[in-house]
Each structure stands twice: as structure tokens, then as C-alpha cells.
Simulated assay, not measured.
Amino acid sequence: MEFAKAEPTVGVIIPAYNCDRYIAQAIESVLQQEGCTYEIIVIDDGSTDSTEQVLKPYRDRLRYVKQKNQGVAAARNHGIAIAQANLIAFLDADDYFLPGKLASQAEILIKRPDLGIVHSGWQRVDIEGNKLLDVCPWKQIPELDLESWLRWKPVLPSAMMFRREWLQYVGGFDPRFPPAEDTNLVLKLALKGCKTAWLRQITVCYRQHGESAMHKGLPQARSLMAVTNDFFSQPNLPPEVKLMEQSVRYGTLVWIAWYLHYTGHPLETTQYLQQAWSYRSNSGIETIVTWIESFAEFSRNWGVQFNVSSLTSSREWQELVQWIIQTTSKIGSQTS
């Protein structure tokens, strides 16, 4: 498909930083899209590898902008600012679209002017593009309202399409929260009343490798907590949203603890569970059982094996259990 000369329906914004190994596949996956007009905008966020050279054969079919390194939030915001299209799709340079992605999501947004976002499923693939797992979040989260975003946070920009005026209305991505600036964006949008619908199909391949955001361990955990803190610190939150704060914080802390266990941070895993326990301290030792069950569920959803003995036999876990037993005993003696 030749690069569209007509006014584009969709702006595909690709932030790139040292992704010369993958970006050609990302570009090709856009060029193979049919059924709608589009523009491709690559924001090179100060790459020091051969990204610019890899893109030379495509320069007549995309807009290439190089800026000094400022992070993915600034790169995406730059793309939003210069896009001509009314609909925006983001594509990380190490991901790639599946056929029909743009046309299917654009069709929904064109037919539904009340919507600001169309979300979809994704396929997790390894560094070579081999399938790991199909992720279909609508099976667990059929409706995407503010409560669902807060509790489950099923955010993947490459699987989404946005109406540009909504992105501009909330000021785009906030660079204070890398690498969870995408979660912050969606929470801002939902709080302002932006509606989301599912396209119940897999539209993008999400590549897993050592440099991808979901392998950034502690920075990802800290960023997600910072986003949660920022959200609930806003003045004038609706009362029904404030009522969710305790349970949302608890669920977020437990998920972060699992994620830190998965990425190999045993001490921080138990530290986040201690914080979570403070929101459920009345439930006592049985909370530990629910954590193990939650870890097993998160692992299934992520498509990885969960070895319960590797968790419970660790020194950090055993110290956590002792801490809960002692703390529960103190609470019991104080209330008796």
C-alpha cells in the first residue's frame, strides 16, 4: 500500500529510541494496513544507534523528526502536536500491528462519536517475534470505565486508538511518571469522562525483551505507585471515586508485589505486601493465602509459571509471615 496522499484518518505515532533492530518491522506493519488512510510519524528521541539509517528507505512514506532525548512521553506528545489526523494510534518501535488494526478501530470511532478510545487485545511475543500468549482483557474486564481502569489498569498504548482532541484536552502524556505515563494518561481521560469501547480482537504484537517497559522492575513499580498517589491526591474527586481508594491501593500494591517477585526482587516484594497488609490488617493471617492465590492468578494472566515454593521458602517471605503474626498478635492484645 502506498503512503496515503489524502488527508489521513489515522496518525500513527512511533516513538523511537535505539530500536534499529525492530523499527523496520514496525513500519512495515503500518504500511501493510488497508482500509483507511494514515500518516506515519516517527519521533526519534535522540537515538545513538542506526535508527536514522534504517529508516532512510521509508522516508518518502513517513514523517521523521529527531529530537534530543527527553523520554517517551515527550516523544509521543511531539507526535500528537504535529499530527494532521483526528484519530491517533501509538506504536512502540519494538511492537508491530497485525492486519486490519487501524481500519477496525477507526471504523468504531467514526461510528461512535461518544467514544474517545477504542482498546483491543494483544499478543505477547518474544524477542524474535515468536508467540508467547494471547491477551484478551475483555474476558476479565468487559466494561472499561473509571473503576475498571483504576482496579485493573489494562493499558497498552500500541493496542489502543484515541481521538486526538481528547489527548489534547488532558495535555497528553505526563513526563513525570516514566514508564507508567500511559496509565496516568488513561486515568486522566477516564476521570474527565472519556469513554472507551473494546474491539474484541488481537490487533498488535507486544514484544518482550530486556529493555521493554515491563521488564524495568523497580522503576515500573515506583512509577505505578506515583501515578496512584497522584490520582488520589487530586482535589474535588467525586465521592464515589474516593470510596474506592482503599481497595484500589490494596489491589495495586499486591499486583506490584507479584510483578517484583516475577522480575526478581524478593525484598521489595515483601515490602510492598507489608504496605498492602496495612489496608487489610483486620483480616489477619488469611491474607497471606489470598496473596498466594493472587500471585497464581497474575502469573496465569501473564502466561508464566508460578512456583509457590520458590516464593514461600524464601527468607524474605518467612520474615514477612513472622511480621504479620507478631503484628496481628499485638493488634489482638490491644483490642481484647
Score class of each variant (00 low, 15 high):
M1F: 11
E2K: 02
A4L: 05
A4K: 10
K5P: 06
E7G: 01
G11R: 07
I14K: 03
P15K: 07
Y22W: 13
A26L: 04
S29M: 03
G35P: 05
Y38R: 06
Y38W: 15
E39L: 08
D45Q: 08
T48A: 14
T48R: 14
D49P: 06
K56Q: 15
V65T: 08
Q67S: 01
K68C: 08
N69G: 10
Q70I: 01
G71S: 01
G71V: 07
R76A: 04
G79V: 07
Q84S: 14
N86V: 00
I88D: 03
A89F: 01
D95S: 04
L98G: 09
L109I: 14
R112L: 02
H119T: 13
Q123V: 04
R124Q: 12
G129F: 13
E143W: 06
L150G: 05
P154V: 05
L156T: 10
S158W: 00
A159S: 15
M160W: 05
M161L: 12
Y169F: 10
G171W: 08
D174T: 11
P178Y: 14
A180F: 03
E181L: 12
A190D: 09
G193D: 01
C194S: 06
A197D: 14
C205E: 09
R207I: 02
H209G: 05
E211S: 15
H215T: 13
P219V: 09
Q220T: 12
Q220L: 15
L224A: 07
E240C: 06
L243M: 12
E245G: 09
Q246G: 11
V248P: 11
L253T: 07
H261G: 05
Y262T: 05
T263C: 07
H265Q: 15
L267P: 00
T270F: 02
S281H: 08
G284N: 07
A296E: 15
F298T: 03
S299E: 03
R300D: 10
N301F: 01
W302Y: 06
G303W: 04
V304F: 02
S313R: 12
W323F: 12
I324E: 00
T327K: 13
T327D: 10
T328V: 09
G332H: 08
S333V: 12
